[in-house]
C-alpha cells in the first residue's frame, strides 16, 4: 500500500502510527474503566496493523483487523458487558510497589531479549529492511506475499495448520457443550 511513498513522509507516518499504538497500549494498562481499556486495546491493534503495512505485510494487516479488531475485541466487550462482576464498569487497581517492580522486571527482560535478538541477526536489521523495501518496489504490481503465504500454509505447514483448526473447532464445540449443560 505504501509502494510509492517517499521516505521522509513514510517516516513521519510511521512515528505517528507508533505513537498511537504506544499511547493506546499505555491507556489499556492505566485505564480505570475496563471498557475504556478494551476500546484502547482496539486502537492498539489498529496501530499494530498499521506497523504491518509499513513492513509491507498488507495481508497480515488485514488479518489483524478482521481477527483482532472485528472479532476478538467484540468478544472481549461481550464478555465484559455480560459478566455480572463489572456492573459498575470500573475496577479499583491496587498499584503496590511489588506490582510496579514486577512489571518493570518483565518489561526489562523482554526489552533485553529483543535487543539481544536484534544483535544476533545474521544480516543487520536496517540492511534487511532496505533490501525488503527494494524487493517490494520492483514486484509491487504482481501480487506478492499472500500467494506464497497460501502455498506455505496449505503445503509445507498443512499438518500444523489443520491441527490448529481442529483445536479451535474443539474449543467451539466444548463451549457449546458447556452452555448446553447449564440450560438443562
Amino acid at each position: 500500500m505504501v509502494r510509492a511513498m517517499h521516505s521522509m513522509l513514510a517516516t513521519l507516518l510511521f512515528w505517528i502510527v507508533v505513537l498511537m499504538t504506544v499511547t493506546a497500549a499505555t491507556f489499556v494498562v492505566v485505564a480505570r474503566n475496563i471498557l475504556h481499556a478494551a476500546f484502547a486495546l482496539a486502537v492498539a491493534f489498529l496501530g499494530v496493523a498499521g506497523i504491518y503495512i509499513f513492513l509491507h505485510a498488507d495481508f497480515l494487516a488485514a488479518v489483524q483487523l478482521i481477527v483482532y479488531v472485528g472479532g476478538i475485541i467484540v468478544l472481549v466487550m461481550f464478555a465484559i458487558m455480560f459478566s455480572a462482576h463489572t456492573q459498575e464498569g470500573t475496577v479499583e487497581p491496587r498499584r503496590t510497589w511489588l506490582a510496579l517492580g514486577g512489571g518493570a522486571l518483565v518489561a526489562g527482560v523482554v526489552l533485553a531479549a529483543t535487543i539481544m535478538l536484534i544483535n544476533r541477526l545474521q544480516v543487520p536489521l536496517a540492511e534487511a529492511n532496505a533490501h525488503a523495501d527494494a524487493a517490494y518496489r520492483t514486484t509491487a504490481s504482481a501480487a506478492p506475499g499472500e500467494i506464497a503465504l497460501g502455498h506455505v500454509l496449505l503445503g509445507e505447514y498443512l499438518l500444523p495448520f489443520e491441527v490448529a483448526s481442529i483445536l479451535i473447532l474443539a474449543a467451539l464445540v466444548g463451549a457449546v457443550a458447556i452452555v448446553r449443560k447449564e440450560t438443562r
Partner: peptide, 18 residues
Amino acid sequence: DFNIGVFYIAAITSIEAI
C-alpha cells in the same frame, strides 16, 4: 486498487461493530 482489495474492505467494515 489494493492487491488485497476485497480483504481490505472486509477488514475495514468489520470495525463498524466496535
